[in-house]
């Protein structure tokens, strides 16, 4: 049994808490948030011990692991505190406000041999897992172009009220939305090495970007396009996709549908020459408890198993999340350079 606490009972926090509450190998030993209305409901209707103060919860409950789902600007201090206390950490994305903080936390976690994971859930989606497998097989030949895209309806009118609209708090489309795509590209092909021709556009927001367009070069040399817009009404919810083109084939994938073009017969197991279509229904492993998507449960299972020493801790490590923070910084800096 893993003794888990959670700090930050907002949208993602409550979602994690529900999955943790239903998890057979987890005991929820504490929840911490400052919202009276949320904490009042949890206190009244759940069995979870509730706290206003983070350190008090840690002192009293001594959890094995903590889920950190507070705004990004609070991550560094809180996670450092947890690592100093030798507690395993699952943090929400984006990881930190700058890559230096993230690298330091990654180093600390490794030094103390603590399980560390960040909530970039796309890596637990069946279609994207299959994309990774295909790329690693080499069946695409030499990859010469990619596009990474995400669109959705988060900010669709002029308004300026939440932490998402404050750049100092980790708000904005680049940090909050594009980070998913960047992290996925980092993982699928190789980490972002540089950015060119970046456009950060404010469409409705006054202080942050609502769209990001950039030309990226990866460490292993591939180049491609990043195109992300969270002010796009034509989508009902966030839609993330990648397309990857190589000399021997091509992949187009989103979270539900995978399309693979193979040039030569026999180049890739389970695929024939020409177009192949697979659906997430065929590529998804069953979970024990479902809320909003298998990937949310799968990432928690992965973390819990690692903390109980029953599985690896290689996906979504602090180190990989710090690389994503680094790519965010590269893109941001490039947007400031005059063409």
């Amino acid at each position: 049994m893993l003794r888990v606490a959670l700090v930050g009972a907002g949208k993602m926090g409550l979602s994690h808490l529900s999955i943790l509450g239903a998890h057979p190998n987890v005991e929820v030993v504490g929840v911490c948030d400052t919202s009276l209305i949320v904490m009042g409901a949890l206190k009244k209707y759940t069995k979870f011990p509730c706290y206003k103060k983070f350190t008090k919860m840690l002192d009293q409950e001594k959890p094995d692991a903590v889920f950190v789902a507070v705004p990004t600007k609070l991550h560094y201090e809180m996670i450092k505190e947890l690592l100093d206390r030798k507690i395993h950490v699952f943090a929400e994305k984006p990881f930190c406000l700058n890559p230096e903080q993230g690298s330091e936390l990654a180093r600390l976690a490794e030094e103390h041999n603590l399980v560390n994971q960040v909530g970039y859930h796309n890596k637990f989606i069946g279609t994207f897992k299959e994309v990774k497998r295909i790329i690693e097989s080499g069946a695409l030949g030499e990859i010469y172009h990619f596009t990474g895209e995400a669109y959705g309806p988060v900010v669709t009118k002029k308004k300026d009220s939440t932490w998402r609209s404050n750049p100092a708090d980790g708000g904005g489309c680049l940090m909050d939305y594009a980070s998913h795509v960047i992290d996925l590209l980092n993982h699928l092909i190789s980490p972002v090495a540089s950015a060119e021709g970046t456009l950060l556009k404010s469409i409705y927001s006054q202080h942050v970007d609502d769209a990001v367009y950039s030309l990226l070069k990866l460490e292993s040399g591939e180049t491609g396009v990043l195109s992300v817009n969270w002010s796009d009404d034509t989508y009902r919810k966030m839609s993330t996709s990648v397309s990857i083109t190589g000399t021997e084939g091509k992949i187009i994938s989103d979270a539900s549908e995978l399309k693979v073009f193979v040039k030569k017969e026999g180049a890739l197991d389970g695929y024939t020459k020409g177009w192949n279509v697979k659906y997430v229904t065929q590529l998804t492993d069953q979970v024990d408890f479902y809320l909003r998507g298998e990937e949310y449960s799968a990432q928690i299972d992965y973390f819990v198993n690692a903390a109980l020493k029953k599985g690896p801790n290689d996906i979504n490590t602090f180190k990989s999340a710090a690389r994503t923070d680094n790519a965010i910084a590269l893109i941001k800096n490039n947007s400031k350079t005059k063409a």
């Binding site: 409550l14 979602s15 808490l17 529900s18 999955i19 943790l20 509450g21 239903a22 409901a41 949890l42 209707y45 759940t46 069995k47 408890f289 479902y290 809320l291 909003r292």
Partner: peptide, 13 residues
Amino acid sequence: VITDLLLGLGMDE
């Protein structure tokens, strides 16, 4: 999404 959220949280009431 609401049924299952409440179910996981144990908010049976």
